[in-house]
Design a protein around this nucleic acid. Structure first.
Lengths: 197, 197
DNA sequence: ACACGTCGGGACGCAACCGTATCGTCGTTG
DNA sequence: CAACGACGATACGGTTGCGTCCCGACGTGT
């Protein structure tokens, strides 16, 4: 039987290494060093670096955030933004997530895993958050969940993960209300007659 | 005198390699191989891999996009979104940009260069696009350019570079009008009394 | 108490890459 | 026309990481 403590140590070390050097430069040797463990211990548990990372992504991405129902779209959005802000402010997360997303652009296996997690997330946001708002009559039933997710998640991700500028707590309600306004306008489902450019 | 053709070949090879393996795994040897050039040729021109990439970033980021004045905020936004969509759909750009942004999270030098380029860009968008709209009376003079940029750029970047979902041309006007609605609401400058979380 | 099975540690051969030093070549200049 | 100067190609020692193999330690079950 594999010792759980060591598996845990390896997992933690992978997170640290991933944040520090990224997936591209992640080496089994460095992980083993940091975890205070032998390489064999790692190879016994995972076949390769890809396996290792994919496993961790599954574990982390598996957690589906509970979208609280505050009774209004604005309230729901504020909570969602606060949760996202909290997650993206973590040093490890804010380094690992963009790194893996970039890696996904060239690694089909990672892309698949991340896409699955992302789809789950987007579907949850779209169906639950938007769904509720539609039921309440706050949004048109025609609202395209796909486009809605872009409007909701894009700004805060850009701010915290790309521009890496601080986001004051006081700004969240303002951002939320702006998004509500945007969602009310973006109610037309995409037209399919046009040619993609 | 250094031969310009070779410098050009190296630059092209770096772009290709950057897209294919990322900054982390970028190796001078591979660049030289791809460019059909000797390593010495590269070391004569740049001191290190970092120098090489920083130089390219400066060159590319230097181009400031001309923000056409269509006479309305909506029109200006549509054009901006089309330009961004066009850029982000390029295979090289859509792989290199997220990769370098992720690398910037751990490399101060890259972060500085990218931040400078990003700031220029954001300032241009904020001052020109928002400034014009304010002059026209389309937006409140209190509009925070910082927050505005997040609302403008976030959704399309998320859609094309993160979620990597296709964006139909027909959806751009819808996204633009949604952003206009968001900007009209996001007119209050950030409050500074609150504590950052 | 003993023997077996499983684990982690360390070493090994192999490959890739780094950064440099040396060599041959070509164009230019006196 | 010859010699100089700058260039690109190649070779080299050193480092790092890969994936595997063997050995000693430990715990368990009889």
């Amino acid at each position: 039987m594999l010792r759980g403590e060591i598996t845990t140590a390896i997992r933690a070390a992978v997170m640290q290494e991933l944040a520090e050097v990224g997936y591209g430069r992640l080496s089994i040797e460095a992980v083993a060093r940091r975890a205070g463990v032998s390489k064999t211990a790692i190879y016994r548990r995972w076949r390769s670096k890809l396996d290792l990372v994919l496993d961790m992504v599954s574990a982390v991405a598996g957690r589906n955030l509970p979208l609280l129902d505050t009774g209004s779209l604005l309230g729901d959005l504020e909570i969602l933004l606060h949760v996202m802000a909290r997650a993206l402010r973590h040093r490890l997360a804010s380094q690992i997530i963009p790194d893996l997303l970039a890696e996904a652009a060239r690694n089909p296996q990672i892309a698949e895993k991340l896409q699955a997690a992302l789809d789950d997330y987007q579907q949850a946001v779209g169906r639950i958050l938007i769904g509720r708002a539609v039921e309440r009559g706050e949004l048109s039933p025609d609202t395209d969940p796909r486009a809605a997710v872009d409007l909701i998640v894009g700004p805060i991700y850009w701010r915290l993960a790309i521009a890496r500028a601080p986001l004051d707590t006081a700004e969240v309600p303002r951002m939320a209300s702006a998004i509500v306004a945007a969602l009310r306008v973006a109610c037309v489902r995409p037209v399919r007659d046009e040619v993609e450019v």
